[in-house]
Simulated scan of single mutants.
Amino acid sequence: MSATASDPRHALAGLDPAPFTFTRRCWVDATPDSVYDLISDVSLIETWSPSAGGVSYAPGDGPWVGARFSGRNRRDGREWVTHSEVVRADPGTAFAFVVGGADHGIVRWDWNFHEQGRGSIVQQSWQLLRLDPVLGDTLQDVHSLRDHMAASAESTLLALAEWIADTKSVTWAVPRNGPRT
């Protein structure tokens, strides 16, 4: 039998996961509806995230509560597959999923979108829901994971903002009545 976080022999037994959370935000030059459409299309996350790739919904699923998707994660030269479930899907407002599924998940990711000026504030939050040996065996491992994920979220948000700006500049560079010949 392997030790778990609820097993008193496990180094993290009794540790409250609640403090292991963070929120990062940035402004992007797009409406909340447009940003929601990008984020809820989980296959696009590898466009911006330095640690996620190969993300796709299960056949027949999409951006709605209860939908499931899987993806590859990378950290410290390792790669693994995660399975997640959408737990909130409010177009133009919020999108959230739980890694491991709603009932027994380990981590929750929330994306919130708020109009500001001609664009939006995009807020990304990460919350550790429960401890699991897959996260590491020591308190330092869990702190390191949270710090890594915070850095990844910052990189993702900045890459998203840059991608939106670059995409708009390419789209807007062509005159509305077509290119001149």
Rank of each mutant, 00 (worst) to 15 (best):
D7H: 13
R78G: 06
R78N: 10
N112R: 13
V99T: 04
F95R: 05
S125N: 00
A30R: 02
P133M: 09
T93G: 03
I39K: 05
A13H: 15
D103T: 13
F69P: 02
W126C: 10
P59F: 03
P17C: 09
L12I: 03
T31N: 01
N73D: 06
V107S: 04
Q127V: 11
R88P: 02
Y57G: 04
G53D: 13
C26Y: 03
R118P: 05
L15R: 15
I121P: 01
V28R: 04
Q127D: 07
V98E: 02
W109D: 06
P50A: 00
A30M: 10
S43W: 09
V28Q: 05
R25S: 15
P59Q: 01
Q124L: 14
Q123H: 02
Q124T: 03
L128D: 06
A52Q: 12
A89L: 15
Q140N: 14
L128T: 11
A5D: 02
A52L: 13
V42M: 09
E85H: 08
P63A: 15
V81Q: 12
G14A: 11
W126M: 11
R108G: 01
W109M: 08
V134W: 09
D132P: 05
G62E: 07
S6I: 06
D90E: 15
A102F: 05
F20S: 11
G60P: 08
D16P: 08
A96L: 11
